[in-house]
Write a protein that binds this DNA or RNA. Structure first.
Lengths: 128, 128
DNA sequence: TTGTCTATTGACATTAATAGAATAGTATGC
DNA sequence: GCATACTATTCTATTAATGTCAATAGACAA
């Protein structure tokens, strides 16, 4: 049986499971949420679809909600319940805090660094 | 107490723990090993230092050995014991298999995709 | 024989990911 | 007034991955 995430991801893909994301995508969820919430305060369900458009479509909703709660525990974002202007039950709407802005700065550096490493890896593979 | 990996990584950094890698780095270990082993058959201890030079310096040796064994279980690489030309105990030297080459092709696509997502995220943050 | 470098493995506790179901409000058609 | 679909969030059980530490052991030089 296939591991459900992480190790050996590329194996599952080869066997026709296109709908499972790689571990890299999962690891980018946190900075992606910070950036989206910084852009405009938002709630889980809306972030879910924003992320979908950005290439995070395979991440399970519960993972996104759980991550948001975790980030709130860390003090990076804060939530308020919004009951009006909703087409359904109340929304928990998150906004970025100063602490979250700080964390985002670290993440930005890390994203650049990651970019460099990936380019290096691709270049090395090309040269073989 | 700080989470030891993943969630909330950027927090630890802010408190002066520069020596802990982000979850992204960990998730790139597998493709990095595939590419290095494809370049030239090699053993764990040597890959450890190659990875260090590439920006994976904070990954614990046992994680690298464990990942290599996992990749061998998946049939992506194969190992032989080499006893001569060593400056210490025997080395388990890995080489890439055809299956590993296939996995690497999927990973290459994913690395490009990841690159695109990261650039998109950084661009979005700039525009805020 | 002590220490240092090379080299690999195993075990334990912690943390994260996944699927699935439960809960619930709103809106629309019939 | 009832079924259905969409919006919106939470919880739980299971499984996988990660981090850390310790153990093992050969080679070589002081």
């Amino acid at each position: 049986m296939m591991p459900r995430h992480g190790r050996g991801w590329a194996m599952g893909r080869a066997q026709g499971q296109e709908d499972r994301h790689s571990p890299v995508i999962g690891s980018l969820l946190e900075p992606a949420l910070l950036i989206l919430v910084k852009g405009a305060p938002s709630h889980g369900y809306s972030l879910l679809s924003d992320l979908g458009k950005m290439g995070f479509s395979t991440i399970h909703p519960s993972v996104i909600y759980r991550t948001l709660r975790g980030m709130e525990d860390l003090g990076w974002i804060q939530s308020d319940w919004v009951t009006d202007q909703t087409q359904g039950p109340p929304r928990r709407t998150y906004h970025l805090t100063e602490k979250g802005e700080e964390a985002l700065q670290f993440w930005k550096q890390e994203l650049s660094r990651t970019n460099a490493i990936i380019l290096q890896l691709l270049a090395k593979e090309e040269s073989d």
